[in-house]
């Protein structure tokens, strides 16, 4: 099962490599990982998407908690949460889908952020599924390059992780 794990950790050099190293060392898989500073500059927040059985997930959470720099770990998927991913995609404009691009941009509620004579650069945000669906809507040959941020998430309402 897919899990979104949110980790609050000390904003210190080496903390990221400890987390990444833990996943390879113990054979846990990472689908995506994002990390950035929080509103408290001494803390970073990391969002990891991983998959595995409940037992594997239990180990991931426990092993993350064991890292000295980790302050808090939470499995967002087990609670009410909001998740988002951002995609930047370059789509070739000289294919027969030229009209289509604008239509799809409208349907998916995304933005064209840059246009050249041959390339549209499009920004899409949403759940991973929406981003996959957006990409699936194009002929693969017209997709020149994509850059995805990976998932970030937060719990809903007053609850903090």
């Amino acid at each position: 099962m897919r899990h979104i794990i949110s980790v609050i950790l000390e904003n210190e050099a080496g903390a990221l490599s400890r987390v990444a190293g833990l996943f390879t060392q113990r054979g846990f898989n990472i689908e995506s990982l994002t990390v950035a500073i929080t509103n408290d500059p001494s803390l970073s927040r990391m969002t990891i998407v991983s998959s595995g059985s409940d037992r594997v997930l239990e180990q991931i959470v426990k092993q993350l908690n064991k890292l000295i720099e980790v302050v808090k770990v939470s499995d967002l998927t087990s609670q009410d949460h909001v998740e988002r991913e951002l995609l930047l995609a370059k789509i070739s404009s000289n294919s027969k889908e030229g009209v289509n691009i604008k239509e799809l941009v409208e349907i998916f509620g995304c933005k064209v952020v840059d246009v050249t004579d041959k390339v549209y650069t499009i920004e899409v945000s949403g759940k991973t599924k929406k981003i996959n669906a957006f990409l699936d809507a194009f002929d693969p040959a017209s997709i020149i390059e994509v850059s995805r941020t990976g998932v970030t998430g937060i719990s809903r309402g007053k609850k903090l992780i």
Partner: peptide
Amino acid sequence: ATGITRSCVKHNFLIR
């Protein structure tokens, strides 16, 4: 040193 020992220590520090 901190990279090499990372997976076989409880914790490590590089003093800056």
